[in-house]
Write a protein that binds this DNA or RNA. Structure first.
Lengths: 110, 110
DNA sequence: AACAAATACATAGTATAACAAAGTATATAT
DNA sequence: ATATATACTTTGTTATACTATGTATTTGTT
């Protein structure tokens, strides 16, 4: 099989899919920290996200005011940076969902 | 609304989606030329593909032996380069569909 | 006690693909 | 004559995922 091509394709597909996934999850469940998001997405979708992908992604979402973050000290261990979606983030993910569903409808109709 | 962000997102989402869409359409309907694919996809999905996006994309698919092309002279007008999907292209789009459906299932379950 | 692995975040450099813009060429409509 | 539609191509820019590396703490293993 052409696995190398598929792997490159998966990497490209993530550009766009990941921000949509993260915002969708945060819209639904409010509170996540980065490291946990990586594991949660892996558990739910088998999509592996490199740490070097997720942390810069979260910073971009924050720069765009789609999420906010707060540091939370732990009684034991390293502090976690928790993310919450904003009102603007919810509006954005609603728009994304429309676009996604439109593409999906077409794919399924082929 | 945060339209600028959405527009950038749509552009990123196309990285991966377009090759999947093109291969899916070719799998279903065999024969298309580039210019026609742009219009067909626009008609079906409202996704606008720049010419500077589609033609290099088709060349990549050809380099990967997922499609083959042939020039067809027209009785009037400019010659068209027609594309057909290969056996390897069909295998690839089947794999892509599995991955896509997996993501989609997750999105819908949120 | 020493070391590996897991947790948790961050950043620099590389590769990929969409896009805008420009170009070539033919045919048709104004 | 000029603009628009058809049809393909190429160059330079931009955005984002990935690899690799780094910091720091806690837990499990030998």
């Amino acid at each position: 099989m052409n696995n190398e091509f598929i792997n490159k394709w998966i990497s490209q597909l993530k550009k766009g899919t990941l921000s949509f996934l993260v915002l969708s999850i945060l819209k639904d469940e409010k509170e996540y920290y980065g490291y946990d998001l990586i594991n949660e997405i892996k558990k739910r979708t088998a999509i592996e996200i490199a740490e070097g992908t997720l942390y810069p992604l979260m910073n971009r979402l924050k720069d765009e005011n789609l999420v906010v973050s707060k540091w939370v000290e732990q009684s034991s261990g390293i502090p976690r940076k928790y993310y919450n979606i904003t009102a603007s983030g919810i509006d954005t993910v609603v728009e994304m969902t429309k676009y996604w569903n439109n593409i999906n409808k077409t794919i399924n109709s082929i």
